[in-house]
Structures are given as C-alpha cells and as structure tokens.
C-alpha cells in the first residue's frame, strides 16, 4: 500500500535517469539522479569546499534556524495569547503587525547585515522575522476561535482571568499554535538559505555550501545540497507533527 504510493516517484526518477543516460540533457545543466547520489557522497566524505563536510554545514544551518525559531517562539506565543485574550491589546498592536508583516523576511537581509554583521545573528534574525508572524497570527486566531461556551463553563466553575488564560485559552489554542509553528519553521528554513546565500562568516552553512558548488560549476553538488535541504525540512516537519500528536492527543486535526 505504502510502496504502491511511491511508484509514480520511482517512475519519475527512472525516466529522469534514462533521459540523462541517453545523453538527451546536458550534464552541466541536469545531472542524473545517480550523479546526484554520488555528489551527496562527495559532500559527506570530501566536503565542499574540500574539507568542509556536509554534516557540519547542516549543523550550522540548523543552529541558526534553532536560534531564530526559538526567539520567535518565546515572543510570539505569549504575545499571541495575550492579543487573542485582550481585544484592546490586539487593536493597539494590529497596525504595527500589519505594517511589518507584508515586508518579506528576505527584504530585511541588507539591513540586518548592517545591524548584526554577516554571521549567525543576522541569519537568525531573518529566520526570527520569517517565523514570528505565522506563529503570532495563528496563536491569535487559535485563541479567538476557542468556543465562548467553554469560557462560560469555566467561569461557572469559578475560573478567574488567570484560569481562563492558562486552563482554557492556552490549551484551546494549542492546535492552532502548532499550525503556526509548522508554518513558521518552514518559512524560517526557507529564508535561512537565502540568508546564507548572502554570505556567512564561519564558512559553514548549507546555503553557503550550495553557492560554493555553483561557483565551481557543479550542478550535481548543487542538487545534492538541495535534496539535503528538502530532506531536513521534511524531517523537522515530521518531528513537529509527532510532537503535536504526543502533546495534543485529543486533537484529531491535521
């Protein structure tokens, strides 16, 4: 059953390999799947630039995302909870949110380099911006979507503001928060690459690795790097989904 679902993908890879093996596509434009696989091995064992190994590139990238994402989480979750709870706070902050949110995170790259210099902090800042708004807005939406009847039920059980906030709105908004986290981490991961294209100081990072491969005209390594990025993104999302199932077993959605 599961294997059957993979058949189209396998077919595509086979066709792709066939096109390349028959010489129908220039190898310097479209490397074959097998060449990409070999590239992956080269990245892992020899490194790009030579000596800088794949897992270290990945570790640096993941660390940048972790920083930016953690900062977004720590700020956006409580702020979203309060904004959802207090309409006046929401009204007061909304214009600012609406002003900043439409600016693409990538548009912040030049100014963040000016502020933080090239390096982990500027990349983390970009990721922070990318992750912050989805988490904030989904949390607000989650809080406001909690059925008012549940607030009343809690009130008839003697709940005060604090109980309402922590025992009703927080758990009620948790599934929407997770949606925000998943979108946020996805956007953070995408923006990371661009932030790294703009330069890294340590010489490590998947974006930097790919740009180096491009400089020496190695499409196989570029695409192997892309595959790694995709796989890591998938893994992070699967991890979050697992966490959600464990933390929110009552929520059947998503």
């Amino acid at each position: 059953m599961k294997l059957a679902r993979l058949t189209p993908l396998a077919g595509l890879l086979l066709a792709w390999q066939a096109v390349c093996s028959l010489g129908l596509a220039a190898p310097y434009l479209l490397p074959s799947p097998l060449a990409i696989l070999a590239g992956l091995k080269e990245l892992a064992l020899a490194g790009m630039p030579p000596g800088r190994l794949l897992h270290l590139h990945a570790a640096h990238s993941l660390l940048r995302v972790a920083w930016g994402f953690a900062a977004a989480l720590v700020l956006a979750l409580p702020l979203g909870l309060l904004m959802g709870y207090a309409p006046r706070l929401h009204a007061a902050l909304r214009p600012m949110v609406e002003l900043v949110r439409p600016v693409p995170p990538l548009a912040w790259i030049p100014i963040s380099i000016l502020w933080f210099g090239i390096g982990t902090s500027s990349a983390a800042f970009i990721i922070f911006l990318g992750a912050f708004f989805p988490i904030l807005l989904n949390t607000v939406a989650g809080v406001t979507s909690v059925n008012a009847i549940l607030l009343e039920a809690a009130r008839t059980l003697g709940a005060g503001r604090r109980d309402i906030l922590l025992k009703v709105l927080l758990p009620g908004a948790a599934p929407a928060m997770f949606v925000g986290l998943r979108i946020g981490v996805g956007i953070g991961w995408m923006t990371l690459l661009a932030a790294e294209f703009a330069g890294v100081r340590s010489g490590y990072g998947l974006g930097h690795m790919i740009m180096t491969a491009r400089d020496i005209q190695r499409p196989d390594l570029i695409m192997a790097g892309m595959a790694v990025i995709g796989a890591l993104g998938l893994l992070i999302d699967a991890g979050l989904r697992r966490l959600e199932r464990r933390l929110l077993p009552w929520s059947q959605g998503s």
């Binding site: 003697g158 709940a159 929110l248 009552w250």
Partner: peptide, 18 residues
Amino acid sequence: APGRVGLVFQNYALFPWR
C-alpha cells in the same frame, strides 16, 4: 458568589483537551 451557581449546558461544553 462566583462559582457557587453551577450550570449544565445543553451541548455539554466539555473541555475537549481534558
């Protein structure tokens, strides 16, 4: 006093996460 009058709702109003 608050919390002294109990109310049972038509549609139960149970907390789905509990």
